[in-house]
């Protein structure tokens, strides 16, 4: 996985409650057997009109947000299905970080596996960032994962919490499977004792 470095990017105001994974990437695009190429379909139903043309009212179709790297999102972002196509599609569009008050568990987990950073902040902090993002002239926010800090356009800083193991994996671009394989002996002995105790398992 690519290392997650400090970056500055355009933040889009996306204050919708309970954005579900069907909304992020509808099922007609789940028939792919690849991880890439889903960016053009992210938020398909909100983003395109019935005739296939872009919906000008949708924030990610508007300048400068069509080049967004950050979403400032409503509560409970990513609820619904386990489809990893949701973070794949967001990542493919160019989103590297989503900031909200809360995320659905599976989406949250899937994001880290794909170098997409979900940051949880308080409602007041999120609302302040939403105001920052609404300023089309200056919507750039800096994300510094190493220092666990969001730097606002006005110079203000917001600290955030993150699980240390997940942080390390993102910063160093570590592969989970490789890490687990380091425990191979422990896994084997666990399996052996389990088959003796509960042979039907």
């Amino acid at each position: 996985m690519e290392k997650f470095n400090t970056f500055k990017g355009i933040a889009a105001p996306f204050n919708i409650l309970n954005v579900d994974t069907d909304k992020i990437i509808p099922k007609q695009f789940l028939t792919t057997i690849k991880r890439t190429g889903l960016g053009k379909h992210v938020f398909d139903e909100m983003r395109y009109k019935k005739d296939g043309s872009e919906n000008p009212n949708f924030v990610l179709n508007q300048k400068p947000y069509d080049k967004s790297n950050i979403l400032i999102a409503g509560d409970n972002f990513g609820c619904g299905s386990s489809r990893e196509h949701a973070p794949w599609a967001l990542k493919d569009f160019g989103i590297k970080c989503i900031i909200s008050t809360s995320f659905a568990d599976i989406f949250y987990n899937n994001s880290f596996k794909n170098g997409l950073l979900p940051i949880m902040v308080t409602k007041d902090e999120r609302d302040a960032l939403l105001e920052d993002a609404k300023d089309k002239e200056n919507p750039e926010i800096e994300i510094d994962l190493g220092n666990q800090e969001i730097r606002r356009p006005n110079g203000g800083r917001i600290k955030f919490k993150i699980d240390p193991f997940r942080k390390k994996c993102l910063l160093e671009g570590l592969d989970d499977i490789g890490l687990t394989e380091l425990h191979e002996n422990k896994i084997k002995s666990f399996e052996e004792s389990r088959s003796t105790k509960h042979p039907w398992l």
Binding site: E84, K113, N114, D176, I187
Partner: peptide, 22 residues
């Protein structure tokens, strides 16, 4: 519980998952 595709690969390869207790 449901898992994403990266975790599907992880379970296929190792029969384990990295988790935190809920």
């Amino acid at each position: 519980f449901g898992i994403g595709t990266s975790e599907v690969e992880h379970v296929l390869a190792t029969q384990t998952l990295i988790q935190k207790k809920a």
